[in-house]
């Protein structure tokens, strides 16, 4: 059975690109979210294997959403996705419990490498 992912990003373009990458690697994208609130709701509903989380979003940002999801399920696997120039945000996210991060703009191979290593049991 293919693994489940929720893609969280306020930009449709980014969501589409990520969906394309995940589907090509035989992942099931169970939900997309445009902000933190939607992400939390989606997580509760689907309990996916992975969440990719944009950091800067309107309404609730990625770091808050990440903290809330981890409070709900400490074993949640969340990877943040952010552009450079937001280095401190990436640091904050990792410190808050993100398993890894992807720097935008990204390439397919990079995304899959990160996804691979955070979702394979060590």
């Amino acid at each position: 059975m293919s693994k489940k992912v929720i893609i969280v990003d306020d930009a449709l373009f980014m969501r589409t690109m990520l969906r394309d990458i995940f589907e090509s690697a035989d992942w099931q994208v169970v939900a997309e979210a445009e902000d933190g609130g939607q992400a939390i709701a989606g997580y509760k509903k689907h309990r996916p294997d992975l969440v990719t989380m944009d950091i800067v979003m309107p309404e609730m940002g990625g770091i808050d959403a990440l903290k809330r999801i981890l409070a709900e399920d400490p074993s949640a696997t969340i990877v943040v996705c952010s552009a450079l120039g937001q280095k401190n945000l990436i640091m904050d996210a990792v410190n808050a419990g993100a398993k890894d991060f992807i720097v935008k703009p990204f390439q397919r191979a990079q995304v899959l490498e990160v996804v691979e290593r955070v979702t394979t049991a060590s």
């Binding site: 280095k87 990436i90 996210a93 410190n95």
Partner: peptide
């Protein structure tokens, strides 16, 4: 982002 990378 070397800092966050090392943190990971």
């Amino acid at each position: 982002a070397p800092g966050p990378r090392f943190l990971v």
